[in-house]
């Protein structure tokens, strides 16, 4: 009997997603894993199966293509006869110094980290609303809370996601569909390797928090929790002071 939760994970080969997949697999979830690299997806899928999960995988060549995304959502919905949840975890961290003077890099960053996430949520929202249950989680970032010189290209794209989810949550209120905006602080993953960052968290506890949030939360979830208070302070620093701060 296959009764595990049916979850679509977009960006399944990202470090945080892999850790979340392991936890879900151990709970017997039925997973639909989407990513760019077929070989890596197979590795992640084998791990999930060995832990007791069921998996199907789909290669999404280009996450900025609505056609690709629409096909992905269709096959994920069909794969297990509907979905209980989705975790959107793909992302690309451009080098801020290089990206800030390159409009194509800015566009690419906004498309991958911002637009594509909104598009996936847009494709799924009516389906979840119709079944009157389910959850949609996306990994945004504390970097989206306020623009910093060191990370505003990436941060802007993440702010798009947070803003979008805030509205979507309000729209879906009362339908039984939860919209979870996960805002991690810096996490030790291949994406952030070599960067100097404060208060770095490990991927595994972050994923544990995410899995818990997906099971019951609705709203904004900071991971680890203390970022809520750090960001509360930082977002209230008056702009004239903020511009002079070197953080």
């Amino acid at each position: 009997m296959k009764t595990g939760e049916r979850i679509l994970v977009v960006g399944a080969t990202s470090a945080i997603a892999q850790e979340a997949i392991r936890i879900w697999a151990g709970q017997g979830a039925r997973l639909f894993l989407a990513g760019r690299d077929a070989g890596k997806l197979e590795v992640v899928s084998a791990d999930a199966k060995a832990r007791g999960g069921s998996t199907k995988v789909a290669v999404v060549e280009d996450v900025t293509s609505v056609t690709n995304l629409s096909m992905m959502v269709d096959s994920a919905w069909k794969a297990w006869g509907g979905l209980d949840g989705v975790l959107v975890a793909h992302g690309w961290l451009p080098n801020q110094r290089e990206a800030q003077d390159d409009p194509l890099a800015v566009r690419q960053c906004l498309r991958i980290n911002g637009e594509s996430v909104c598009e996936i949520l847009t494709l799924l929202a009516p389906r979840f609303a119709k079944q009157r249950s389910g959850w949609m989680a996306a990994i945004s970032s504390v970097a989206g809370d306020r623009g910093r010189a060191a990370m505003y290209v990436y941060g802007a794209a993440k702010a798009v996601v947070s803003h979008f989810m805030s509205g979507l949550r309000q729209r879906l209120e009362g339908t039984g569909v939860r919209v979870i905006d996960i805002r991690p602080g810096p996490v030790d993953t291949p994406m952030t390797e070599g960067l100097k960052m404060p208060l770095v968290a490990a991927a595994e506890p972050v994923a544990r928090r995410i899995v818990r949030a997906c099971a019951k939360s609705n709203g904004v979830v900071y991971v680890p929790w203390f970022w809520r208070f750090i960001m509360l302070i930082l977002t209230h620093v008056p702009e004239p002071i903020w511009v002079k701060m070197k953080i």
Binding site: Q18, V43, V44, A46, D47, A50, R51, P190
Partner: peptide
């Protein structure tokens, strides 16, 4: 440590 996946069980 990044290579800590199960392959088959």
């Amino acid at each position: 440590r990044g290579l800590n996946r199960l392959v088959k069980f």
